[in-house]
Nucleic acid binder design. Sequence first.
DNA 1: TTTATGGCTGTCA
DNA 2: ATGACAGCCATAA
Length: 104
Amino acid sequence: MTTLYADVHDLVRRIPAGRVATYGDVARLLGRPRVARQVGYALAALDSDTDVPWHRVVNAQGRISPRGSGGSDELQRLLLEDEGVHFDDDDRIDLARFGWSGPG
DNA sequence: TTTATGGCTGTCA
DNA sequence: ATGACAGCCATAA
């Protein structure tokens, strides 16, 4: 597949454990700074048995996007905490510390 | 092809 | 700092 989805998946797979990236960052790394929304959308289309660490992607505020169903928003937090990512009292992540600036 | 819909983001108050 | 609004663009009907 040479679609945006595949590119997003490939990039997200490169996010190291214990790090997080924003949708905008992922989009920008792909060379499409305007498709941040589609990035989140691409992650939403992932399968349950996917190998893509979708939980390492959060919004620009360092918070988890409330999709409101599936409870994946809680799962995401658990997975991140399990990787050593620390959440603030406001359920926020310090992007300055855990933010991933790309492969280089 | 045209609508409709978003796991977002940046600006304004 | 928070709350509200418009832009942006790929996917699915």
